[in-house]
């Protein structure tokens, strides 16, 4: 029987969970759609330089004004969403897959395989991601590809460790033993017993990590290591706008607000999902 216990969480009391869940999902969903439909939604070519209209105020033609090269800010924000969200999904999905594979193997097999894989993870963890990015940039020159590869190489370790922990906890449960007694193959145990029980925490961690991935990409681009001009990306836009911080602060504010909203939404969504599924976040 489930006895409803008093919950101590402040967040739980302060916020209306359902509203957060719906609000954040709706916002992120719309943003994804807008990013996908950017070529149709954007009023102008985001790369079209027209110095005649540089640093314009918002108007009917340029709803959010223009930047120092006369490019439409709204169009650039929309195209920037494609880069930020798209690559965040890519980093998330690829590091998740690697992490899932390695973590599950380590947790399920255990013994020396586990030891070996985990020592390898420790090695990777000990290597700061920023240094890795700088190293890759130093070798291959700045660019989005380098940043993404670097982030992927580092991110999967967290997933691997998390999945290993989850699988090890599940493996102790007797239903895994019962499944083996009942003749299920290891692959079937993975599909029918491990995966469905890993999914809720996966969803929670996933949403939280997406926020971080966006943050990382933007930060790298802001530092000039990631996306290179003239490509539109939020971090890069802040980078370009910073020279005009006194005269036209909105060039930094628009992308900044977008980054903030998206990350806040992902985090709130992650928090409310974790409340809903009763998943405790593993410490990063």
């Amino acid at each position: 029987m489930n006895i409803p216990l008093r919950r101590p969480s402040l967040l739980h009391r302060l916020s209306n969970q359902r509203l957060i869940l719906i609000g954040c999902s709706a916002f992120l969903g719309l943003l994804f759609l807008a990013a996908l439909a950017a070529p149709w939604l954007a009023p102008h070519d985001p790369f079209l330089v027209n110095l005649a209209v540089k640093l314009q105020e918002p108007s009917w033609t340029y709803p959010l004004g223009t930047d120092h090269l006369g490019r439409c800010t709204l169009s650039r924000l929309l195209y920037g969403a494609r880069v930020s969200l798209g690559f965040a999904v890519l980093i998330f999905a690829s590091s998740l897959l690697i992490g899932l594979l390695i973590g599950t193997l380590a947790g399920y097999i255990g013994g020396w395989v586990d030891q070996l894989l985990m020592r390898f993870c420790d090695g990777v963890m000990a290597f700061p991601s920023l240094i890795l990015v700088l190293g890759l940039v130093g070798i291959f020159g700045p660019g989005l590809k380098q940043v993404i590869i670097a982030l992927m190489l580092v991110q999967w370790v967290y997933y691997a460790r998390m999945f290993r922990g989850l699988v090890m906890t599940l493996k102790e449960k007797n239903f895994i033993a019962a499944a083996r007694v009942n003749g299920s193959s290891h692959w079937k145990i993975f599909r029918t017993h491990l995966l469905p029980n890993i999914l809720p925490p996966l969803l929670v961690i996933g949403t939280l990590e997406m926020g971080w991935a966006i943050m990382d990409i933007s930060a790298m681009s802001f530092l000039g290591l990631g996306v290179q001009s003239p490509a539109a990306e939020w971090g890069a836009m802040i980078h370009e706008g910073k020279s005009y911080i006194r005269t036209n602060p909105e060039l930094m504010i628009y992308p900044g607000v977008m980054i903030m909203l998206v990350i806040a939404s992902f985090n709130l969504l992650g928090e409310s999902l974790s409340e809903r599924f009763g998943v405790t976040k593993p410490p990063k």
Partner: peptide, 23 residues
């Protein structure tokens, strides 16, 4: 051969831990 698996079965103490909660 895995024939013996069919012939030896088990009932554990904690029934909630002995079944997959999603099934």
């Amino acid at each position: 051969a895995n024939d013996y698996r069919q012939d030896i079965q088990v009932v554990f103490q904690d029934s909630f831990a002995a079944v997959n909660p999603k099934m």
